[in-house]
Amino acid sequence: MSSLKIKKGDMVKVIAGKDKDKEGKVIAVNVKNNTLLVEGINMVTKHAKPSMANQQGGILHQEGPIDISNVMLLHKGTPTRVGFKMDGDKKVRYAKKSGEVID
């Protein structure tokens, strides 16, 4: 399985869909479905029954998954495509716009 270009904790910008041009931090990445959860993006309502964890129950607002192709990584505030290159014997991500190593 190939490694994804976006990881948990990255800042991303939405480039397609109802939340276009919004930015947020990646909360979780689902490699199997190529989706991710981004803070404040694709908010959905969920109706929860009262339980031990949630005594009150009611309507919850939470992030829904967004396809990984609909976001772009932000590097120093600018959206950029991501590439991989070898830095010595280590594989690293780099921003294609500036050529700088991301991590």
Score class of each variant (00 low, 15 high):
3 S>F: 14
4 L>E: 15
6 I>D: 05
6 I>R: 03
6 I>W: 12
6 I>L: 13
7 K>D: 15
8 K>S: 13
9 G>F: 05
10 D>Q: 05
12 V>C: 06
14 V>R: 02
15 I>K: 14
15 I>L: 13
18 K>Q: 14
19 D>A: 08
19 D>P: 08
23 E>W: 04
23 E>Y: 03
23 E>A: 11
24 G>D: 04
26 V>Q: 02
27 I>S: 03
28 A>S: 14
30 N>M: 04
31 V>C: 13
31 V>G: 12
32 K>T: 14
34 N>C: 10
35 T>L: 06
35 T>K: 07
36 L>P: 02
37 L>W: 11
37 L>I: 05
37 L>S: 03
38 V>W: 01
39 E>P: 00
39 E>V: 09
42 N>L: 00
43 M>H: 01
44 V>Q: 12
44 V>A: 01
44 V>I: 12
45 T>L: 07
46 K>Q: 12
48 A>Y: 07
49 K>R: 14
50 P>R: 07
51 S>A: 09
52 M>K: 13
52 M>D: 13
52 M>P: 09
52 M>F: 14
53 A>C: 04
54 N>M: 07
54 N>P: 00
54 N>R: 07
55 Q>L: 15
56 Q>S: 14
59 I>W: 00
59 I>M: 06
59 I>F: 00
59 I>P: 00
60 L>P: 00
61 H>P: 01
62 Q>W: 04
64 G>F: 04
64 G>Q: 06
64 G>A: 07
66 I>M: 09
67 D>L: 10
67 D>W: 10
67 D>K: 14
68 I>E: 10
68 I>S: 04
70 N>K: 15
70 N>C: 11
71 V>W: 02
73 L>I: 04
73 L>G: 02
75 H>V: 11
75 H>A: 06
77 G>P: 06
80 T>D: 07
80 T>C: 03
82 V>Q: 03
82 V>I: 14
83 G>H: 08
85 K>I: 11
86 M>C: 01
86 M>G: 05
86 M>E: 10
87 D>M: 08
88 G>V: 10
89 D>V: 12
91 K>L: 14
91 K>H: 05
92 V>Y: 07
92 V>T: 03
92 V>S: 03
93 R>K: 13
94 Y>V: 03
95 A>L: 08
95 A>V: 02
95 A>R: 04
96 K>A: 10
96 K>V: 12
97 K>C: 09
98 S>F: 01
99 G>I: 02
99 G>K: 07
100 E>A: 12
102 I>G: 07
102 I>W: 04
102 I>F: 10
